[in-house]
Amino acid sequence: MNTKRLSESMEKALSDQMNKEIHAAHVFLSYGIWADDRGYQGIAKFLFRHAQEERNHSIKFMEYVLNRGGKPKVEAIPAPPEDPESLSACFDGVFRHEVDNTTAIYSIVDKSMEEKDWATWNFLQWFVKEQVEEETLAQDLIDKLKIAGGDRATDESLFTLDKALEQAPDEAPLAQDATADNP
């Protein structure tokens, strides 16, 4: 008896996203190594934590496909981009990568609606919310660097930013959680 509850195209889309999440982990790992090499250990730790989070996202996709009777396919992961030229380029790269990931997830959400695959649609809602958080965190990186002075920031400002990111929470406050008492 066939117990697979995913279409072939949905299984492929979810497998592709699993691999995309692993690629994101490699990108953030690469950026973290770059930051550490330049003395930004706090920024590196922040990026290493997010690399681990992306690996965890990949496992969520893998488990879901397996639980629906499918078999996810591990593909070759593209090499991460070249080292960024600056912290601005690094943080811009993180943001662009998150926006690209959001677009890919939205595409699978659209596909689940077209196929009336409500289990997959429901599964993906966690990722939709997660991507709002990820984009917010990435935008916060860019904003914090701008406040510090951007690529012309003083060593003191960059030291303070580095220490702040080392201790920064891994979650961003989201608009849907805001209240009058907690804006």
Rank of each mutant, 00 (worst) to 15 (best):
D36M: 12
D37I: 02
D37C: 07
R38E: 15
Y40K: 03
Q41W: 01
Q41E: 15
G42C: 04
I43L: 13
A44F: 04
A44N: 03
F46L: 02
F46Y: 12
L47C: 03
L47E: 05
F48M: 08
R49A: 07
R49V: 09
E54V: 05
R55C: 05
N56V: 01
H57W: 07
H57F: 08
H57P: 13
H57M: 12
S58I: 02
I59R: 13
I59Q: 15
I59F: 14
K60I: 14
K60N: 12
F61P: 05
F61S: 08
M62C: 12
E63Q: 15
V65K: 07
L66D: 02
N67W: 03
R68E: 09
R68Q: 15
R68M: 15
G70R: 11
G70K: 09
G70V: 14
P72L: 05
P72I: 08
K73R: 09
K73V: 15
V74G: 02
E75H: 10
E75G: 03
P78D: 04
P78R: 00
A79H: 13
A79Y: 11
A79G: 10
E82Q: 07
D83R: 00
P84I: 07
P84V: 06
E85F: 00
S86Y: 01
L87F: 03
S88Q: 10
S88A: 08
C90H: 04
C90I: 07
C90A: 15
D92L: 14
D92N: 15
G93A: 11
V94H: 13
F95A: 12
F95R: 14
F95K: 15
R96E: 13
R96N: 13
R96L: 08
E98R: 07
V99R: 08
V99Y: 01
V99P: 03
D100T: 08
D100G: 12
N101Y: 00
T102N: 13
T103D: 14
I105S: 01
Y106F: 04
Y106P: 00
S107P: 00
S107N: 11
S107H: 09
S107E: 08
I108H: 01
V109N: 00
